[in-house]
Design a protein around this nucleic acid. Structure first.
Length: 204
DNA sequence: GGGCCGATCAAG
DNA sequence: TTGATCGGCCCA
């Protein structure tokens, strides 16, 4: 894979099937999302320009952008694109292929193995990672998370795409990618704006 | 300095 | 469908 050279969506597709290893657990990546950089993608955390939080996105490719969400979960992104572009791939879900015991210790409430890493917060939890991994490299072996390519690339016809999850803008952009029919892919939920008064949320 | 809300998850 | 829980970012 040519992480630095590729646009966010190409890097995202290319990462499907890769193995993520950290703290005794290995996950096969089954779902990702692409986020483009400054000015081009309103859903990207880098959209409004560099801040203390997103600074790593503006640096070289192959480093981890970790952010906390909803006060209690962390999400993993791999920075891609040329330095200064600030694009990244959100690692959304995967299948635990090694270290299932340790994974279950970290997520004691889970029932089926396929749910161990079936979402971005879950994936981070299972790998035993948090914001302390911010800025570390996944490509030079110095960081807690390492990535290795699949035995064979995922065939094009097994890759599906659609709108990103929980994203309020750019719903026309099919920048969520997943492996067709894989049971570990997170359930898609269309973004629903927080409702002020008693308007029914269902219908249609 | 204050207020709002999010690239989520699990339980009812 | 909803509560948990808090940092980042906008506005004043």
């Amino acid at each position: 894979m040519r992480l630095p050279a590729e646009a966010a969506d190409e890097a995202a597709r290319g990462l499907l099937g890769w193995r993520l290893t950290a703290n005794g657990v290995t996950v096969r990546l089954t779902e990702v999302e692409a986020y483009s950089g400054l000015g081009t993608d309103p859903a990207s955390h880098a959209h409004r320009g560099p801040t203390n939080r997103n600074a790593v996105m503006f640096g070289p490719a192959g480093r981890l952008y970790v952010y906390q969400i909803y006060g209690m979960y962390n999400c993993l992104n791999v920075v891609c694109g040329e330095e200064g572009v600030a694009a990244a791939v959100l690692l959304r879900a995967g299948e635990v292929v090694d270290g299932v015991d340790r994974a279950r210790e970290r997520r004691p409430t889970v029932k089926a193995d396929r749910d161990l890493a079936a979402g971005p917060g879950k994936l981070t939890q299972v790998l035993g990672l948090d914001r302390s991994a911010y800025g570390t490299s996944v490509v030079d072996g110095t960081g807690p998370l390492t990535i290795t390519p699949p035995p064979a690339p995922i065939p094009e016809e097994l890759i599906e795409s659609g709108p990103r999850v929980g994203v309020t803008s750019a719903h026309d952009l099919p920048w969520r990618f997943w492996i067709k029919d894989d049971p570990t892919v997170s359930a898609y939920r269309r973004h629903v704006p927080r409702r002020r008064t008693g308007t029914p949320a269902h219908g249609g």
